[in-house]
Amino acid sequence: MDLAAFTAALPKCELHLHLEGTLEPELKLELARRNGVDIGQRTVEEVRATYAFDSLASFLAVYYPAMDVLVTRRDFHDLAMAYFRKAASQNVLHAEVFFDPQVHVARGVPFADVVGGYHDAVLQAQRELGLSAALILCIVRDMPVESAEAVIEAVMGFREEVVGIGLDSDERGNPPARFAHLFARARAAGFKLTAHCDVDQEDSTEHLRQVLEDIRVDRIDHGTNVVDDPRLLQLLRERGTGLTCCPISNSFVTDDSKAPVIAQLLRSGVRVTVNSDDPAYFGGYVTENLIALTRQAGLGPDELIQLQRNAIEISWADEEVRERFLGELDAYEALAAPDL
C-alpha cells in the first residue's frame, strides 16, 4: 500500500466544512430547475466556470449568490445529504459542519427550514451511513450585527439540533470582538464556540488574541498565524486548543497552502487537524487535502494518524463516538501502517 492509498482508506474526522460550500455544479443546476431560479447557466460546465476566482473577494462574490437556489427545507436536506454521502465515501466517521443562516433568512427563507433541513440530513446520515454529524451555526461577520443577533436568538430554540456557534466570512474590518456579546450568550446557553481566524489577514494576530483571551473559544478555524506570536502559541498549547486547517483553500486565498507551518505545528504538539473548507469551490474534500499536505510537507503514516487523533480529541462528539472512532483508528493503524 502506498501513502496515498493509506490516506484514502484512513478513518477520518471532519471539523471545518461549510455545507453551502459543498454545492456542486450538478446539484446547483438541479435545485435551480426545481425552484424556478434563473442562475444564468444551463450546463454543468457553465456553472463550473463561474466557480473560478483569484481572491477572497472574488470567491465571496461567487459563493453567496450561489445560495439563491436553496429555497425549501428539502433543498437544505439534499445539499447536506450529498455532502454526507461524499464524506462517507472518504471514510469520514464524524463531521461537524458549518452553515450560514443569516444569508438564507435575508432571502426570506424561514430559519426553521434551514436548520430543519440540515438536521433531517444529519439524522439520515446516522441511520443510513453510520456517519456521526453535528451542526455549527456560523455568524457571517460582514453582515449587520443585528442579523447575527437575530439568528442567535432564533437558535436558542434549536439547542438539540445545533452543537456550536462559529464565525466566518470576510475578516477585514470585522474583528471577533465585534461579536463577543453573542459568543458570551451562546456560551451561557451551552453552545460550544469556534471562530475563523483566516490566514494572513489584516490584524491576524490581534484577532487570534481576541478569540483566545477575550472570547475563549474552544477551537480556532485556520489560525496558522499563531506562529507569529510566541505568547499566543504558548497559550494555545497550554489550553490544548485545536486548529482546523485547510491546505487547499489556503493556496487559493493566499497562494500558500501553509503546509510547512501546519507540519511544524503538528510536530510541536499543537492539535492541528486537516479539513475541506468549501470543497465544491476549491476542488478537494478531506482526502485530497490530506494528500496535498502529505506531499508538500513530507508527512508519514504516524503523522496522518496523529492528525485524526487530534481531530477526535478536539471534536464535540459524545464519548461513544470518540471511543468508536479511536478504536477504528487504532485497528487501521495496526493493520495498514506496517505495510508502508
Rank of each mutant, 00 (worst) to 15 (best):
residue 247 P to R: 11
residue 296 Q to L: 11
residue 87 A to I: 02
residue 71 V to S: 03
residue 119 H to I: 02
residue 317 A to R: 03
residue 81 M to Y: 04
residue 179 F to N: 10
residue 51 Y to P: 01
residue 182 L to M: 14
residue 113 D to Y: 02
residue 175 P to N: 14
residue 54 D to V: 04
residue 284 G to V: 01
residue 320 E to F: 12
residue 253 V to D: 08
residue 285 Y to T: 05
residue 203 D to P: 00
residue 300 G to Q: 13
residue 222 H to E: 13
residue 23 L to N: 05
residue 49 A to E: 10
residue 233 L to G: 07
residue 109 V to T: 06
residue 130 G to R: 04
residue 224 T to S: 12
residue 99 F to Y: 05
residue 238 E to Q: 15
residue 20 E to Q: 11
residue 161 E to P: 07
residue 69 V to H: 05
residue 210 Q to A: 14
residue 13 C to I: 15
residue 95 A to H: 01
residue 262 I to D: 06
residue 46 E to H: 03
residue 141 R to T: 10
residue 282 F to G: 02
residue 95 A to N: 00
residue 49 A to W: 00
residue 114 V to D: 01
residue 323 E to W: 02
residue 71 V to D: 03
residue 207 H to Q: 15
residue 278 D to N: 06
residue 63 Y to V: 04
residue 57 A to V: 06
residue 270 V to N: 06
residue 117 G to V: 04
residue 17 L to F: 06
residue 17 L to E: 07
residue 165 I to Y: 09
residue 274 V to I: 15
residue 157 G to W: 04
residue 258 K to L: 15
residue 27 L to K: 03
residue 252 F to C: 09
residue 292 A to G: 00
residue 150 A to I: 14
residue 309 R to E: 10
residue 72 T to L: 07
residue 159 R to Q: 12
residue 277 D to L: 06
residue 235 L to F: 09
residue 86 K to L: 01
residue 200 D to S: 14
residue 333 E to T: 09
residue 269 G to L: 12
residue 161 E to Q: 15
residue 134 A to R: 08
residue 179 F to G: 09
residue 3 L to W: 06
residue 127 R to D: 08
residue 96 E to G: 05
residue 22 T to A: 14
residue 286 V to M: 13
residue 34 R to C: 02
residue 269 G to D: 14
residue 272 V to L: 07
residue 257 S to P: 05
residue 212 L to P: 04
residue 139 I to Y: 08
residue 283 G to L: 06
residue 120 D to W: 01
residue 321 V to M: 06
residue 90 Q to E: 15
residue 332 Y to S: 07
residue 219 R to F: 14
residue 198 D to C: 05
residue 235 L to N: 10
residue 204 S to W: 04
residue 93 L to H: 05
residue 85 R to L: 00
residue 93 L to G: 11
residue 141 R to K: 13
residue 226 V to P: 08
residue 176 P to I: 12
residue 138 C to A: 13
residue 79 L to Y: 02
residue 114 V to P: 01
residue 298 G to Q: 07
residue 143 M to Y: 04
residue 333 E to Y: 10
residue 140 V to Q: 13
residue 96 E to N: 09
residue 120 D to Q: 03
residue 299 L to P: 05
residue 67 M to G: 12
residue 213 E to G: 12
residue 337 A to V: 09
residue 130 G to K: 04
residue 137 L to H: 09
residue 57 A to C: 00
residue 73 R to M: 01
residue 319 E to R: 13
residue 84 F to P: 02
residue 140 V to F: 07
residue 27 L to A: 03
residue 276 S to T: 05
residue 286 V to L: 14
residue 82 A to P: 00
residue 64 Y to G: 01
residue 158 F to Q: 11
residue 311 A to L: 10
residue 336 A to P: 09
residue 299 L to H: 06
residue 224 T to R: 08
residue 212 L to S: 10
residue 145 V to K: 12
residue 22 T to F: 09
residue 117 G to D: 07
residue 295 R to T: 03
residue 316 W to H: 15
residue 136 I to P: 01
residue 98 F to L: 09
residue 243 L to P: 03
residue 317 A to V: 15
residue 225 N to F: 10
residue 100 D to T: 09
residue 242 G to Y: 04
residue 309 R to W: 08
residue 82 A to H: 02
residue 166 G to T: 13
residue 211 V to Y: 07
residue 19 L to F: 11
